[in-house]
C-alpha cells in the first residue's frame, strides 16, 4: 500500500517534468496540424483559420484538376527513387572499398574527409556549386582548357540540372550514409574470412560469398527505411539550387507548397497540397515500419 502511494506521488513529478514538452507540442505541433483544416476553408484573414467559411473539397478538386499537380507528383517520386538507389549503391560501394583497407591511418583520414560535406548546409553547398558549375566556374574552366568548347550553362538545362541534383546529393551524403554499412561490415565474424583463406578463396569470392550475404539484412533494412522519404525529394537541395527554367523537371511537393503558400499567397491551396502530402507520406511511413519489422527484425519505436 505504502509503495503504491509513493509511486503515485512520484508520478505527479513525472507529469510535471513532461509538462513543458507537452505544452510546446500542443501549441507548435498539434494545433498547427489541426490548422490543416484550412485546406477545407476559404481563408479570411480577419476571421482566422477557425472562423473562416467552409469550402468543402473545392481546393482538393482544384488540386486534382491542374496539370502541375500531376507533374510534381511524378517529379517527387522519380527524384526520390533515383536518389534512394544512387545513395544506397554509392554508400555501399564506398563502404566495401573502405572495408578492404588494412592501413588504419588511411581509413581514418578518408573517413574524416568524406563525412564532412554531410554537416554543411544546402545553403552553403548551393552557394559553392552555383559558383563551381557557373560559366566562369572551375568545371567550365576545365572543359574550356580541354576542348576549348563553349561553356555549358548547367543550371538552365533540364538534363544538366538533374545530373547536378543527383551528383551533388551523392557527393554530400555518400560518406555519411556509408556509416551504417561500415558498422555492419565490422560486425562480420573474422573466422569466416580465415576459413575462406584456408580454402584459398579469392578476394572476389569472399566478397560474394561472405561479405555481401552478411550485410544483406542491413541493405534491405536501409532500403525499406528510405521509402519513408519518398514524398520528400530533398527540399533544401532543390529549393536552393533551382530556378524557374527547370521547374518542369525539379518542382517537388515541398517547393510547390512554398511557392503557392508564401509567394502566391494561396494559403488554402498550399495547405491542401501539404495535407495530401503528409497523409500519403504517413501511409508510406507505416508501410515502411511494418516491412522493417517483418523483414529487418527491426523496431524503431
Amino acid at each position: 500500500m505504502k509503495e503504491k502511494k509513493i509511486r503515485s506521488l512520484e508520478a505527479v513529478h513525472y507529469h510535471v517534468m513532461l509538462l513543458p514538452t507537452l505544452i510546446l507540442l500542443a501549441i507548435f505541433s498539434i494545433y498547427p496540424t489541426l490548422g490543416s483544416i484550412m485546406a477545407f476553408k476559404y481563408f479570411d484573414p480577419i476571421e482566422g483559420i477557425w472562423g473562416s467559411p467552409w469550402a468543402g473539397l473545392d481546393h482538393f478538386k482544384m488540386l486534382f484538376q491542374i496539370p502541375e499537380f500531376k507533374q510534381i507528383t511524378i517529379n517527387t517520386i522519380t527524384i526520390s527513387l533515383i536518389k534512394i538507389i544512387l545513395n544506397i549503391s554509392c554508400a555501399l560501394a564506398f563502404a566495401l572499398l573502405l572495408h578492404e583497407i588494412k592501413k588504419r591511418w588511411f581509413k581514418r583520414s578518408v573517413q574524416t574527409i568524406v563525412y564532412l560535406p554531410f554537416f554543411l548546409s544546402w545553403v552553403i553547398m548551393a552557394g559553392i556549386f552555383k559558383d563551381f558549375f557557373s560559366i566562369d566556374g572551375l568545371i567550365n574552366g576545365i572543359i574550356h582548357r580541354l576542348s576549348g568548347g563553349e561553356p555549358i550553362m548547367f543550371f538552365n538545362s533540364n538534363t544538366w540540372f538533374m545530373i547536378i541534383v543527383y551528383v551533388t546529393d551523392v557527393w554530400k551524403g555518400f560518406g555519411f550514409n556509408a556509416i551504417v554499412f561500415l558498422a555492419a561490415l565490422t560486425a562480420i565474424n573474422p573466422n569466416l574470412y580465415e576459413a575462406a583463406d584456408v580454402d584459398g578463396a579469392s578476394r572476389w569470392a569472399k566478397l560474394v560469398n561472405i561479405t555481401l550475404p552478411s550485410i544483406k539484412g542491413t541493405i534491405v533494412l536501409i532500403l525499406i527505411l528510405s521509402l519513408q522519404g519518398i514524398l520528400s525529394g530533398g527540399f533544401d537541395q532543390i529549393f536552393n539550387l533551382y530556378n524557374p527554367l527547370v521547374y518542369q523537371v525539379v518542382d517537388i511537393y515541398d517547393t510547390y507548397i512554398y511557392r503557392m503558400g508564401f509567394q502566391s499567397n494561396q494559403y488554402e491551396f498550399a495547405t491542401a497540397v501539404g495535407l495530401f502530402r503528409s497523409a500519403v507520406a504517413f501511409i508510406f511511413i507505416l508501410i515502411s515500419q511494418w516491412l522493417a519489422k517483418k523483414y529487418g527484425e527491426y523496431k524503431v519505436f
Binding site: 489541426l34 484550412m38 482566422g48 519505436f301
Partner: peptide, 23 residues
C-alpha cells in the same frame, strides 16, 4: 499516452502554412 503523443507528432508533422499562422 505520452509516448503516443511524442511519436505521433513526429510522424505526422504540420504543414508549413498553418505553422506560419501559429507562429
Amino acid at each position: 499516452i505520452y509516448m503516443w503523443i511524442v511519436i505521433g507528432t513526429m510522424l505526422f508533422g504540420p504543414s508549413t502554412v498553418p505553422m506560419f499562422f501559429t507562429v
